[in-house]
Simulated assay, not measured.
Amino acid sequence: MSNANRNNSNQNSTQQEPDKERVDVATASSTTFPAGFQALATAYGDYTKKSFEDTRSFVEKLSGVKSFEKAIEIQTEYAKTAYETFVTESQKIGALYGDLAKQSYKPFGGFGAGTNSTNR
C-alpha cells in the first residue's frame, strides 16, 4: 500500500471514531427524549385537572350565593386563583419545554468540534 493510501486509510479510521461517538450520544439522547414529552403531557394533564376542579368548586359556591356582593367576592377570588395557577403552571411548563430543547440539541453539540478546516 502506498503512503498516500495509508494516510487516507488512517484519516478514515480516525474520522469514524468521532462519528461513532456522535451516534452513541444521539442514541442515548433519543432514549431520554420521550421522557421529556411524558413530563410535558403530565404537566398539561395536571393543570387541566386542577383548572377543572377549581372551576367546578367556583360554580358550586356561586350557585349557593344569596347576595350580589357575595357573588362578586367569589368571582374575584376565583379570578385571582385562576390567574395565579395559570402563571405558576405556565412557568413550570415553560421550564419543561426548555429542558426538552436542551436534551434535543445536546447530540448536536459536538458536530462542529470534530471537523477540520483543511478539507477545502
Rank of each mutant, 00 (worst) to 15 (best):
S104F: 09
G114T: 15
K66V: 15
L96A: 02
N12R: 13
L96N: 03
D24A: 13
Q11T: 09
T88L: 05
S57V: 07
F111I: 13
S9E: 10
E73I: 01
K70M: 11
K106H: 05
V65K: 06
L62A: 15
I93L: 09
N5F: 08
N8P: 00
Y105Q: 11
A39Q: 07
D46R: 10
V25R: 12
E21K: 12
S9Y: 06
S67D: 13
G110W: 01
G94S: 15
S9P: 00
P18R: 04
G110R: 09
T42H: 04
G112S: 14
F33G: 00
Q91P: 01
E89Q: 14
E84M: 12
S104K: 09
E17A: 12
S104Y: 05
P107T: 07
Q91C: 10
T85H: 10
E60W: 02
A79E: 14
Q103P: 00
N119V: 06
G94D: 12
E17Q: 13
E77H: 01
T14H: 03
Q16Y: 07
Q38E: 14
D46C: 03
G114F: 15
Q15N: 14
E84S: 12
I74N: 06
S117L: 15
Y47K: 08
K61Y: 01
G112M: 10
I93Y: 02
N7I: 12
E53F: 02
Y44L: 14
L62D: 04
V59D: 04
R120T: 13
K80N: 09
Y105P: 02
A79H: 04
G36F: 06
L100C: 06
E69Y: 04
D54E: 13
T31L: 03
N116P: 00
V25E: 05
